[in-house]
Simulated assay, not measured.
Amino acid sequence: MGHGGDVIDELVTDHREVEEFFGRIEALPSGAKDRKLYADQATIELVRHSVAEEAYLYPAVREHLANGDALADKETDDHSRAEQIMKDLEACDAADPEFDRLIAMLMTEIRSHIADEEQNLFPQLRAACPQNMLDDLGDKVRQAKKLAPTRPHPSAPDKPPANKLLAPGVGLIDRLRDALTGRGKKG
């Protein structure tokens, strides 16, 4: 978290980190307990990333791209599907047969979303926005990730202003829960 650069560089770095967790999951045999640890770490990063995109990236997409509303709606729908999978995955341990099915679904959903953003959305945004705006959005996204929730909340609002108002409080509660349970930490 907090890599630096403009919004696109920041989000692409997040994508690589999540892919690294997915690779670690895939490298372990079914039922290995570290698969749950890596799934939790991926979920933490994905939720923070999604909240930041919904608060700052997608409003910019809506404002600056000719087909921005349709693009932002599609990306937000992708997030909703992934968030529900993460919520279902949260209830499974690595030995649960449902874990393998859900983690495979999540990886497929996220990889498709990443490819779409990196091949379609990001190049359009880079072409439409001045560099200083992309830099400013990068700073806002980094700040939002620091305060964002770390657990999936499928019923939470995903559009401003409600998402910007609620995310910091929910994020604080999630981080307290994580600290108390050790979630996302190798131990």
Score class of each variant (00 low, 15 high):
Leu137Asn: 07
Leu172Thr: 14
Glu53Gln: 08
Ala60Arg: 04
Leu106Lys: 05
Thr150His: 00
Leu71His: 07
Ser50Met: 11
Thr108Gly: 15
Met107Leu: 01
Arg151Gly: 10
Ile114Pro: 11
Leu37Ile: 12
Pro97Cys: 07
Glu53Ala: 09
Asp40Gln: 15
Ala156Thr: 09
Ala39Gly: 13
Gly2Trp: 02
Ile173Val: 13
Asp100Ile: 04
Ser112Met: 08
Glu63Ser: 12
Tyr56Gln: 03
Pro130Thr: 02
Ala82Cys: 09
Pro152Ala: 12
Leu147Ala: 13
Glu17Val: 03
Ala82Glu: 14
Cys92Leu: 13
Ala66Pro: 03
Ala60Ser: 08
Lys146Leu: 15
Asp9Trp: 05
Cys129His: 01
Thr76Leu: 14
Val18Cys: 02
Glu90Gln: 13
Ala82Val: 05
Ala32Asn: 09
Ile103Asn: 05
Asp100Met: 04
Ala52Trp: 09
Asp77Val: 01
Asn132Gly: 00
Val141Cys: 14
Arg183Tyr: 05
Arg24His: 11
Arg48Thr: 04
Leu176Gln: 08
Arg62Phe: 04
Arg177Cys: 05
Glu45Gly: 07
Ala52Ile: 03
Glu45Tyr: 01
Pro160Ile: 07
Ala27Phe: 01
Asp116Trp: 02
Leu37Trp: 09
Ala60Asp: 05
Phe122Ile: 04
Leu176Lys: 07
Asp135Trp: 06
Glu75Gln: 14
Ala95Tyr: 10
Pro168Trp: 06
Thr76Cys: 09
Val47Asp: 04
Ala82Lys: 13
Leu71Gly: 06
Ala32Pro: 00
Ser155Gly: 12
Arg177Ile: 11
Met86His: 00
Glu83Trp: 01
Asp116Cys: 09
Asp136Ser: 13
Thr181His: 06
Asp158Gln: 15
Ala60Pro: 06
Ala156Gln: 14
Ala55Arg: 15
Ala162Trp: 01
Pro130Lys: 14
Pro154Ile: 11
Ile173Cys: 07
Tyr38Ala: 12
Ser80Trp: 00
Ala179Ile: 08
Lys140His: 09
Glu109Gln: 12
Ala72Trp: 01
Gly171Ser: 12
Ile85Gln: 03
Ala94Asp: 04
Ala104Thr: 10
Asp93Phe: 11
Lys36Cys: 07
Pro161Thr: 12
Leu166Tyr: 02
Glu109Arg: 08
Glu63Val: 01
Asn163Gly: 02
Val12Gln: 12
Lys33Val: 11
Arg111Gln: 12
His15Ile: 01
Leu57Trp: 02
Leu65Tyr: 08
Glu26Gln: 02
Asp158Met: 15
Gln131Cys: 03
Arg48Val: 02
Asn132Leu: 05
Leu180Lys: 08
Val170Pro: 00
Ala95Asp: 12
Ala148Thr: 05
Asp178Glu: 15
Asp116Ser: 11
Gln84Ala: 00
Arg81Lys: 11
Arg62Asn: 08
Asp9Ile: 06
Leu165Cys: 09
Asp69Phe: 00
Met86Lys: 03
Ala115Cys: 06
Asp93Lys: 11
Ala32Ser: 04
Ile85Leu: 12
His3Pro: 00
Pro29Leu: 08
Ala127Cys: 05
Asn163Ser: 11
Asp78Val: 03
Arg177Gly: 10
Leu172His: 06
Leu176Trp: 10
Arg35Tyr: 07
Ala94Phe: 10
Ile8Phe: 08
Phe99Arg: 04
Val7Gln: 00
Gly31Trp: 10
Gly138Asn: 13
Glu19Ala: 13
